[in-house]
Amino acid sequence: MTSAQLRRAAWAAGAVILAGIAILTADWVIASIRAPRDDRTVKALQQKVKEDPAVSAKLDAEQKRITDARRARRIRDRAVGWTLIACSAIFLGAVKRLIARSAPKAVEMSRIAAPISTGKKRKRKRKTCCGAHAHDPAAALDLGFVDEAVAQHGRGREAAIPLLQAIQQHYRYLPDEAMRRLCEITDITPAEIAGTSSFYGQFRSTPVGKHIVRVCHGTACHVAGARQISDELRRRLKIPEGFDTDADRMFTLEEVACLGCCSLAPVLMVDEHTAGRLTPATAAAALEEVEEKEPA
């Protein structure tokens, strides 16, 4: 369901709920006004019937009418009650979905990307959505693959993840142009793309280096000087502030919350290889190890 449909459903259900409550209230008010009046009518008729047997039919009719009216009210109220429950379910469901889709939630979703990219970077990343990236081979990007992928996976929201996966596999990251193209030709909104792509660790919005370096910034590592490690690596790899991959696209630097080996703090992981009890100097050495292994 699209947002517009949801919005329409919510409005309609809300209107029905209000109408139902209005009916119930009106019913109650009318009943409480009517009851004493009916009582009076019946009493008067009962007095009359003492003299005139002909009034009996009228009294019978009156009592039947009152009984029927009360019964009808009960049935009606019950029906309205069930309608209210059904409409409340629709209303709540629709509103909850709408809220889940709205912008603040997307920001929350992107927060989940915290282990992958730091807060500062996230801010920057949004900017890069529009501006050109230094490493970005924007001009050379062939968007034909996006169309192909859409043709293969479909245009619905449910296809978002497979599409992103396909695009990531093809380009090795999620280029902005490709994302824009994706938004144009599918039902997927930019917010959804931002939410999904920033949530899952496997999606990247910038080109990725050959090796991923995860520097632990958990409490223990932080205390043990993780910041210095990160800074030293940035300096070494000449990665400017706001970016995470060096110019050679060899290393991509990540700051993660915890690598789960606090006793080795400070820790980093280069791909699957872990190095602990680091100092700025040994950290650089750990990278060099990998560099050396690299068959140049």
Binding site: Q46, V49, K50, E51, P53, S56, L59, D60, Q63, I66
Partner: peptide, 21 residues
């Protein structure tokens, strides 16, 4: 029956007592 109601041609009270019959 509402035994205070007038008697009908059958010789019975013309009105029933129960309001819900």
């Amino acid at each position: 029956f509402d035994i205070t109601s007038a008697v009908n041609e059958l010789g019975l009270p013309s009105q029933k007592l129960c309001p819900r019959d």
